[in-house]
């Protein structure tokens, strides 16, 4: 790994100022993607701005309508939070299936979402629950956030400070993990809002997380496995690699969506 200047600011404003001043800087959250990437020589930033010292960015607040999770909150903290378990149990369960224990102790929700790995789990939850991504500059609806392979709506230097998840009537997450990496080969998060409208978020299958409009329409009419039994996702444009073909991933979307509907509570 090439050397860099290390910074650990205590506030969001200081972090943003440090990045702005740097010619080639990156933010570091849990570090479980950026550090391996830097070790491989794929990135060699001049400045690394570690966000882990910003206390205001971590923690979980639940109200009657939403659960707001600070961007620096770790996967383990989300998975074991009694507030999340009570309000959106599917979200806590999903966080508890990311990586292994040691990874969950470091990886953060903000880091995961900002990285937008096509096989990461949080994007499906953000889409299905209709989350709002809060940054130091604005609020971005999840539907406008994940724009492509490792691409997001974030501008240079913008920092995710929190993610707000509306509390659904019911929800569930189903994942087919790659047996070696435990990243989602395909993962589906299904939620039915308090207004009865259903949303289906898919990760792992495409270059970016996406929603399945046909399933959402059917589930909004009748939230049952049967109502989506015949709905297929076209494999065109899905990921096709050594781990799975596009057709297999498309098949998994249907299977996992049905399982998620059956499990939703």
């Amino acid at each position: 790994m090439e050397n860099f200047n290390y910074h650990r600011p205590a506030t969001v404003a200081a972090a943003a100022a440090l990045l702005k001043k740097s010619k080639d800087g990156v933010y570091l959250a849990g570090g479980h993607t950026i550090l391996p990437t830097m070790k491989q020589g794929l990135r060699a930033p001049k400045d690394v701005v570690d966000l882990s010292g910003i206390k205001a960015m971590s923690g979980i607040k639940a109200s009657a309508g939403a659960v707001v999770i600070g961007a620096g909150t770790t996967h383990m903290e989300v998975a074991s939070s009694s507030a999340v378990k009570k309000a959106i149990p599917a979200l806590a369960e999903m966080a508890g299936k990311i990586g292994g224990v040691h990874v969950r102790h470091k990886g953060t929700i903000g880091g995961s979402i900002a990285n937008a790995d096509p096989a990461s789990d949080y994007p499906s939850a953000c889409l299905a629950l209709g989350a709002t991504i809060v940054t130091n500059q604005r609020k971005i609806p999840a539907d406008k956030f994940f724009t492509g392979l490792f691409q997001t709506a974030l501008k240079k230097g913008e920092i995710i400070t929190a993610v707000s998840f509306p509390i659904p009537k019911r929800a569930a997450h189903q994942k087919f993990p790659n047996p070696a990496s435990r990243y989602a080969l395909t993962g589906v998060f299904v939620a039915q809002g308090k207004d009865g409208k259903a949303r289906v978020g898919v990760t792992g299958a495409g270059p970016a997380a996406f929603r399945v409009a046909d399933m959402e329409a059917a589930l909004s009419k009748e939230f049952s496995e049967k109502s989506i039994a015949a709905i297929k996702v076209p494999p065109r444009g899905l990921l096709n690699d050594m781990h799975a073909t596009a057709a297999y991933r498309a098949h998994l979307v249907s299977v996992l969506a049905r399982r998620a509907v059956a499990a939703a509570k």
Partner: peptide, 10 residues
């Protein structure tokens, strides 16, 4: 934690 993926400075 996995100490190969944690910066000492942090």
């Amino acid at each position: 934690v996995k100490s190969c993926t944690v910066l000492a400075a942090s």
